[in-house]
Amino acid sequence: MTVILEWLSGLCLLLGGGLCISGGVGLLRMPDFFSRVHASGVTETLAAPLLLSGLLLQMELSLDSVKVIMIMILVLATNPTATHAMAKATLHGGQRPLEFANGKDIGGDGSSKL
């Protein structure tokens, strides 16, 4: 049983670490702010829960496990709000997303003029 848990925890930690680095690489490679937000989302939505579950599987069950679960819920619950706040502030600041779309104009419905 403990061997299975150890393997599972190792798998979670490895996957989480890999995703973490992917997010960092995406943060550097993406061309503009709005696409960088998506890259940063990779590390916060999947890498953080994976790494924390890896940690959870290594610890013995105690009050600390509850704290790890609380951190997981907190990161997952606050990430969309923080991301949305950043995107909104950026739009207020006058930045517009880079577009490679198929020639479709999106600025015309009045919503882009905040």
Partner: peptide
């Protein structure tokens, strides 16, 4: 494994710092 994950986090922190 824990060490590998910590190293991965540190690398990502470095990338974010750049």
């Amino acid at each position: 494994m824990l060490t590998a994950a910590i190293v991965a986090i540190l690398v990502t922190m470095f990338l974010a710092l750049i």
